[in-house]
């Protein structure tokens, strides 16, 4: 790091904000308190619902963002649902997935699907991931990086199928963040956390909205179980 530049920049900031040795401790405490407590601020009412309504809101909002959603009773239904999805779109019966035990434990033998594992090199048409959670307020999926669900599977294939446990749908982003903090430890994050709301799009040509820019053209969510 360029130490002298850092000192110069920080010196200017400290003078501008009126930092002095006398107020140093009080200012530090304010900052430490905020970083420690992470106060929540204004949480919209919209997502604050009992589980069943919350799930219904998630599905409504995800659909509004051009995702498609299917409800499954149990994980056992996933292979057939994936196979049907690809078949209906005339897509090759191949799917790329990560090492997530919730997915690798599935029995695909009753389908004609060929399942391969690992990150995408860009040649996969379809991928299957497992979400950490869903946010009802905006219909947003939450996915974390790692060998279980490599991030490239979220962006490179044209068709992204995501499994979401109905019990993992929360009302707001803050609830997801709290869970993340609990899992990872305070102040520690996975390398990448992706909040995904619908398939990729662009409006850069004449402000006309088009689906399928650089990320997936289609996002299909499999909601498993009851809320």
């Amino acid at each position: 790091m360029s130490g002298s530049t850092r000192d110069a920049v920080m010196g200017r900031i400290r003078r501008a904000v009126g930092a002095t040795p006398a107020n140093e401790e009080a200012r530090r405490r304010v900052v430490e308190d905020r970083l420690g407590a992470a106060p929540a601020g204004v949480i919209p009412e919209r997502g604050q619902l009992p589980p069943a309504e919350r799930l219904a809101l998630f599905i409504q909002m995800a659909t509004k963002a051009d995702a498609t959603v299917a409800r499954l009773k149990s994980t056992a239904e996933i292979p057939e649902e994936v196979a049907a999805y690809l078949r209906e779109r005339n897509l090759p019966a191949t799917i790329r997935t990560g090492g997530d035990p919730r997915l690798s434990g599935l029995d695909f033998s009753q389908t004609s699907l060929s399942v391969t594992q690992g990150p995408s090199d860009g040649d996969d048409l379809s991928s299957l991931s497992h979400a950490d959670g869903g946010i009802a307020e905006t219909g947003t999926l939450v996915l974390s990086s790692g060998p279980d669900n490599p991030t490239s599977l979220n962006f490179l294939p044209e068709y992204h199928i995501v499994v979401l446990d109905a019990a993992d749908v929360t009302g707001d982003m803050e609830a997801v963040l709290a869970r993340l903090r609990q899992r990872q430890g305070k102040g520690v994050m996975p390398r990448s956390v992706n909040f995904i709301t619908g398939p990729s799009r662009s409006a850069d040509i004449e402000q006309t909205l088009l689906l399928g820019a650089h990320g997936p053209r289609s996002l299909h969510i499999l909601v498993v179980g009851d809320a």
Partner: peptide, 19 residues
Amino acid sequence: EMSVYTTLSTGPRRAEDQD
């Protein structure tokens, strides 16, 4: 309501990461 992708990045590839 929300942009399609909000991506949080923290540091480089981890030991266990495949990408």
